[in-house]
């Protein structure tokens, strides 16, 4: 399955919906979207990965790159993910300590609201 990307902004939080496979072939599209969002002043990003079928280290690299960019603007990049096969990759690489990972968009929005 290819990669589908969509995004919307609710309050100050930009929610990026990702569906499909994030790998060495498709990850550049996600990178371009994250860079574009940051360049347009969206510094609080929530990436919903509930419909992601596959994620490899290239995809992890893109997410880390996005995190570095938003942090340069005192922003945030957090994730929604409950799929064990995806979470396992974050655990193996130690990235569970780097990203805020939530069980749902609502949960992330609530946490983000408290931080404001």
């Amino acid at each position: 399955m290819d990669l589908k990307l969509d995004h919307r902004t609710e309050d100050r939080l930009t929610i990026v919906e990702v569906e499909g496979e994030i790998d060495v072939y498709t990850a550049p599209r996600l990178r371009e979207l994250l860079i574009d969002l940051v360049n347009k002043g969206n510094f609080h990003l929530l990436v919903n990965m509930e419909k992601v079928d596959f994620l490899d280290s290239t995809g992890l690299g893109v997410l880390v790159g996005g995190l570095k960019r938003v942090r340069a603007h005192d922003g945030s990049l957090e994730l929604v993910c409950t799929q064990e096969r995806i979470l396992k990759i974050f655990r193996i690489t130690g990235l569970t300590k780097v990203f805020g990972i939530y069980a749902s968009v609502d949960e992330a929005k609530e946490a983000h609201g408290k931080d404001k």
Binding site: R31, T58, G61, G66, K68, I89
Partner: peptide
């Protein structure tokens, strides 16, 4: 040890091997 400042988003070969 993981250092966010050192991570590149273009070539994550160490991550790949770790995975």
């Amino acid at each position: 040890p993981l250092d966010l400042g050192m991570l590149s988003d273009s070539f994550m070969s160490n991550f790949g091997l770790a995975v």
